[in-house]
Protein backbone atom coordinates (compact mmCIF):
# COMPACT_ATOMS: atom_id res chain seq x y z
CA UNK A 1 0.00 0.00 0.00
CA UNK A 2 1.33 3.44 -0.94
CA UNK A 3 0.59 6.80 0.55
CA UNK A 4 1.48 9.84 -1.56
CA UNK A 5 1.65 13.11 0.34
CA UNK A 6 2.89 16.59 -0.52
CA UNK A 7 4.58 18.97 1.87
CA UNK A 8 6.22 22.32 2.11
CA UNK A 9 9.82 22.27 3.22
CA UNK A 10 9.76 22.63 7.00
CA UNK A 11 11.00 21.01 10.17
CA UNK A 12 7.60 19.27 10.42
CA UNK A 13 8.48 17.23 7.35
CA UNK A 14 11.54 15.79 9.07
CA UNK A 15 9.50 15.22 12.22
CA UNK A 16 6.94 13.29 10.17
CA UNK A 17 9.65 11.12 8.64
CA UNK A 18 11.30 10.42 11.97
CA UNK A 19 7.96 9.58 13.58
CA UNK A 20 7.09 7.17 10.77
CA UNK A 21 10.47 5.52 11.24
CA UNK A 22 9.97 5.29 14.99
CA UNK A 23 6.71 3.39 14.33
CA UNK A 24 8.62 0.93 12.19
CA UNK A 25 7.52 2.25 8.80
CA UNK A 26 10.66 2.09 6.70
CA UNK A 27 9.57 2.45 3.09
CA UNK A 28 9.91 6.18 2.80
CA UNK A 29 10.78 7.85 -0.46
CA UNK A 30 11.10 11.64 -0.75
CA UNK A 31 11.12 13.67 -3.92
CA UNK A 32 11.91 17.39 -3.61
CA UNK A 33 10.28 19.31 -6.46
CA UNK A 34 11.82 22.11 -8.49
CA UNK A 35 9.78 25.23 -8.09
CA UNK A 36 8.06 26.97 -10.99
CA UNK A 37 10.40 29.39 -12.63
CA UNK A 38 10.65 31.29 -15.86
CA UNK A 39 9.54 34.80 -15.16
CA UNK A 40 10.24 37.33 -12.46
CA UNK A 41 7.22 37.84 -10.28
CA UNK A 42 6.56 40.88 -8.20
CA UNK A 43 5.19 39.00 -5.23
CA UNK A 44 7.51 36.05 -5.45
CA UNK A 45 10.46 38.33 -5.71
CA UNK A 46 9.82 39.19 -2.08
CA UNK A 47 11.46 35.89 -1.34
CA UNK A 48 14.62 36.73 -3.15
CA UNK A 49 17.50 39.00 -2.32
CA UNK A 50 19.64 38.63 -5.38
CA UNK A 51 19.13 42.02 -6.89
CA UNK A 52 15.66 41.44 -8.30
CA UNK A 53 13.97 42.01 -4.97
CA UNK A 54 11.60 44.89 -4.98
CA UNK A 55 12.29 46.03 -1.44
CA UNK A 56 15.91 46.91 -2.28
CA UNK A 57 15.07 50.17 -4.02
CA UNK A 58 12.37 50.94 -1.47
CA UNK A 59 14.72 50.78 1.50
CA UNK A 60 17.56 52.61 -0.22
CA UNK A 61 15.27 55.45 -1.32
CA UNK A 62 13.70 55.44 2.16
CA UNK A 63 17.01 56.15 3.87
CA UNK A 64 18.00 58.75 1.23
CA UNK A 65 14.73 60.69 1.35
CA UNK A 66 14.56 60.34 5.11
CA UNK A 67 18.05 61.81 5.51
CA UNK A 68 17.20 64.76 3.25
CA UNK A 69 13.77 65.17 4.83
CA UNK A 70 15.20 65.23 8.34
CA UNK A 71 17.78 67.80 7.23
CA UNK A 72 15.17 70.07 5.68
CA UNK A 73 13.05 69.55 8.77
CA UNK A 74 15.45 71.65 10.80
CA UNK A 75 14.22 74.62 8.77
CA UNK A 76 10.69 73.58 7.69
CA UNK A 77 7.78 74.00 10.05
CA UNK A 78 7.01 70.43 11.08
CA UNK A 79 10.51 69.63 12.29
CA UNK A 80 13.07 66.94 11.50
CA UNK A 81 11.22 63.88 12.87
CA UNK A 82 8.02 64.31 10.88
CA UNK A 83 9.84 65.30 7.69
CA UNK A 84 12.22 62.38 8.17
CA UNK A 85 9.28 60.00 8.41
CA UNK A 86 7.54 61.59 5.41
CA UNK A 87 10.78 61.22 3.46
CA UNK A 88 11.09 57.58 4.47
CA UNK A 89 7.53 56.75 3.48
CA UNK A 90 7.80 58.63 0.18
CA UNK A 91 11.13 56.99 -0.64
CA UNK A 92 9.87 53.51 0.14
CA UNK A 93 6.71 53.95 -1.91
CA UNK A 94 8.66 55.44 -4.80
CA UNK A 95 11.08 52.50 -4.78
CA UNK A 96 8.25 50.00 -4.77
CA UNK A 97 6.40 51.91 -7.51
CA UNK A 98 9.51 51.99 -9.71
CA UNK A 99 9.83 48.25 -9.34
CA UNK A 100 6.13 47.68 -9.89
CA UNK A 101 6.31 49.74 -13.09
CA UNK A 102 9.39 47.85 -14.28
CA UNK A 103 7.66 44.60 -13.43
CA UNK A 104 4.54 45.60 -15.32
CA UNK A 105 6.46 46.65 -18.41
CA UNK A 106 8.49 43.48 -18.36
CA UNK A 107 5.56 41.14 -17.87
CA UNK A 108 2.93 42.89 -19.94
CA UNK A 109 3.11 40.23 -22.59
CA UNK A 110 3.58 37.25 -20.35
CA UNK A 111 0.28 36.61 -18.67
CA UNK A 112 0.65 33.57 -16.51
CA UNK A 113 -1.28 32.54 -13.53
CA UNK A 114 0.16 33.32 -10.16
CA UNK A 115 0.27 30.64 -7.56
CA UNK A 116 -1.00 31.78 -4.22
CA UNK A 117 -0.78 30.27 -0.79
CA UNK A 118 1.14 27.20 0.26
CA UNK A 119 3.14 25.39 -2.36
CA UNK A 120 3.87 21.70 -2.64
CA UNK A 121 7.62 21.42 -2.48
CA UNK A 122 8.15 17.76 -1.63
CA UNK A 123 6.36 14.55 -2.55
CA UNK A 124 6.63 11.91 0.12
CA UNK A 125 5.81 8.34 -0.82
CA UNK A 126 5.31 5.94 2.07
CA UNK A 127 5.06 2.24 1.37
CA UNK A 128 3.59 0.26 4.26
CA UNK A 129 1.38 -2.66 5.31
CA UNK A 130 -2.35 -2.07 5.04
CA UNK A 131 -2.66 -2.25 8.82
CA UNK A 132 -0.25 0.65 9.30
CA UNK A 133 -1.76 2.89 6.66
CA UNK A 134 -4.19 4.66 8.97
CA UNK A 135 -1.40 5.38 11.44
CA UNK A 136 0.89 6.66 8.68
CA UNK A 137 -1.90 8.82 7.32
CA UNK A 138 -2.55 10.35 10.73
CA UNK A 139 1.13 11.09 11.22
CA UNK A 140 1.35 12.82 7.84
CA UNK A 141 -1.79 14.93 8.41
CA UNK A 142 -0.57 15.84 11.90
CA UNK A 143 2.63 17.21 10.40
CA UNK A 144 0.83 19.45 7.94
CA UNK A 145 0.74 17.44 4.75
CA UNK A 146 -0.86 19.60 2.07
CA UNK A 147 -2.51 16.80 0.16
CA UNK A 148 -2.60 13.02 0.30
CA UNK A 149 -3.79 9.94 -1.55
CA UNK A 150 -3.58 6.20 -0.89
CA UNK A 151 -3.15 3.58 -3.58
CA UNK A 152 -3.28 -0.17 -3.52
Amino acid sequence: MQIFATFEHSTFLEMAISELESKGIRGIYALPLDSRQGQARLIDSLHRADGTSFVDKGFILAFMFSTIGASKGFVWAWGPVIWGLIGAGTGFLLGVLINAAAFYLKNRKLKRRKIKGLKSEVILIVTCEEGQSVLAEDILWDHFALGMAKTK
Partner: peptide
Amino acid sequence: EIKAASAVVDPQWLMYVPSFYFFTIY
Protein backbone atom coordinates in the same frame (compact mmCIF):
# COMPACT_ATOMS: atom_id res chain seq x y z
CA GLU B 1 4.50 70.25 20.72
CA ILE B 2 6.16 70.49 17.31
CA LYS B 3 8.45 73.40 18.18
CA ALA B 4 9.75 71.68 21.30
CA ALA B 5 10.34 68.48 19.35
CA SER B 6 12.45 70.28 16.74
CA ALA B 7 14.41 72.10 19.40
CA VAL B 8 15.22 69.06 21.50
CA VAL B 9 16.92 66.86 18.84
CA ASP B 10 20.62 67.08 18.11
CA PRO B 11 21.08 67.36 14.33
CA GLN B 12 24.63 65.98 14.28
CA TRP B 13 23.45 62.75 15.95
CA LEU B 14 19.98 62.56 14.44
CA MET B 15 21.37 62.34 10.90
CA TYR B 16 22.84 58.92 11.61
CA VAL B 17 19.41 57.53 12.38
CA PRO B 18 17.66 57.21 8.97
CA SER B 19 20.34 55.11 7.27
CA PHE B 20 20.98 53.08 10.40
CA TYR B 21 17.31 52.38 11.05
CA PHE B 22 16.42 51.32 7.52
CA PHE B 23 19.57 49.29 7.24
CA THR B 24 18.63 47.13 10.22
CA ILE B 25 15.16 46.48 8.79
CA TYR B 26 16.54 45.67 5.36
